[in-house]
């Protein structure tokens, strides 16, 4: 899977979780950019991402993420190591 494909899949997940088809993610997108992105939606996002990509993160990995780009990098790095 290319990074572009990862970002496309992440965009679909975000649209589903926030029920908002107008979301367009960039590497810099973070919780300040999406009004409903609170701690509960963060959990919903992580669970949806783990299920979609078939991988599990540990707590430290997800708590250090600053934006969507870092999430995409984490997914790429974990998929390369599998």
């Amino acid at each position: 899977m290319t990074r572009e494909e990862v970002m496309k899949t992440l965009n679909e997940i975000f649209c589903n979780v926030f029920d908002d088809d107008s979301i367009v993610l960039t590497d810099e997108t973070n919780a300040n950019d999406i009004e409903d992105w609170d701690s509960l939606e963060q959990i919903n996002l992580i669970v949806a991402i783990e299920n979609e990509f078939g991988m599990m993160f540990d707590m430290a990995e997800v708590s250090d993420l600053a934006n969507v780009g870092e999430m995409a990098d984490l997914i790429m790095s974990k998929s390369e190591n599998e």
């Binding site: 963060q42 959990i43 992580i46 669970v47 783990e50 299920n51 599990m56 993160f57 540990d58 707590m59 990995e61 997800v62």
Partner: peptide
């Protein structure tokens, strides 16, 4: 059904 350690959630 599912245990997500990263966010401590059980489904």
């Amino acid at each position: 059904d599912e245990l997500h350690e990263s966010v401590k959630r059980a489904s």
